[in-house]
Amino acid sequence: MKRSMAQRHRSGITSDREPGFGRMLALSVLLHVLTVVFVSGVMFTRAPVPERLSYKVNLVNRPVEQPRRGHSAAAPEKKVSAPAPRQAPAAAKPASKPAPKPAPKPAPKPEAVPKPATVPKPAPKPEAVKKVEVPAPAPAKIKTPEQNVTPTPKAEVPPAPKVAPQPLQPMLSAAEIERIYQQDTHARIDEIRRENEASARIEQLKRQLAAQATAQSPTTTTVSTETVGSASGTGTQAGIAFEEWIMEYLAQHWTLPLTHRKKGLRSTVVLRFDAQGNRTGYTMLIASGDSLFDQSVEQCVLSLQTLPAPPSKSRSFTIIFDPNEMLKK
């Protein structure tokens, strides 16, 4: 190719293109394209702010640099052993309902649970009642099958005060009072048991419905609601993105009177934090021009002094306060 061009040149035939013209042309085109992309990307994308996903973030979750994929509003993950002591006393009441749901219940009562599971009904009953040692055991007893309810009526403190007025009738003997007391107590126990069974059934149905909804929802198929993370997370750390945390925090601490929510007001602030998560400063990049609006924005960013977790390096965030979306009718 080179030779033929040189030959043509020597033979007096002029070439249409300079040597390397193709490369230069390609470079020129590439540069033009990049320039257009750059200018349109940087200068014009800000005008129409793209629709943002609205997050509901649980501020309990700590922000991390590389959040994993998950749900930002999910409750923080708990260690399995932690809830055990806390739920022990609470287990007395609702114990009967969760019976069909073995997962949460057994954990709180490590000692008692194995017994009901392995031993026949009568055995665990007295033990459970003794262990509680408080008037509350009534529900605990209900946890066991119905016929076992009868042996522990005295533990039913709540009905006692209701029956108390009965002795005022002088014509009733002690035996009759006792009989009425027993009848009322038994009736009350039955009633409580029925209520508990009904509510347990309702709870169970609710859980089933929730499970079905979670399984069927197209929006949650890829994101586990159990996992603490960011919807757009690609990292491996459990936690939410700093941006999500800051957005939720500032939204909660932004005070703007209803009488002052007007269309067209918008401010942009840059917030800077050092590597320890302390706010090092802020800059009002674009003020709205409205005194109260801008002050409310400044008060809001001032309320965030420290990030709940240190970022790996000093960081700055550009924050746009723009209530216009909310004012759309």
């Binding site: 990307g41 940087v42 994308t45 800000r46 702010v49 943002r52 609205s54 941006e243 800051i246 957005m247 500032l250 939204a251 909660q252 601490h253 932004w254 005070t255 703007l256 009177p257 209803l258 929510r261 409310s296 700055s316 965030f317 550009t318 924050i319 746009i320 306060f321 723009d322 209530p323 216009n324 979306e325 909310m326």
Partner: peptide, 17 residues
């Protein structure tokens, strides 16, 4: 830089304490 923008659209409180 663009991606770092945080947009807050809803003030959490409506009266100045």
């Amino acid at each position: 830089l663009l991606a770092a923008d945080i947009v807050i659209t809803t003030p959490g409180r409506s009266a100045i304490p």
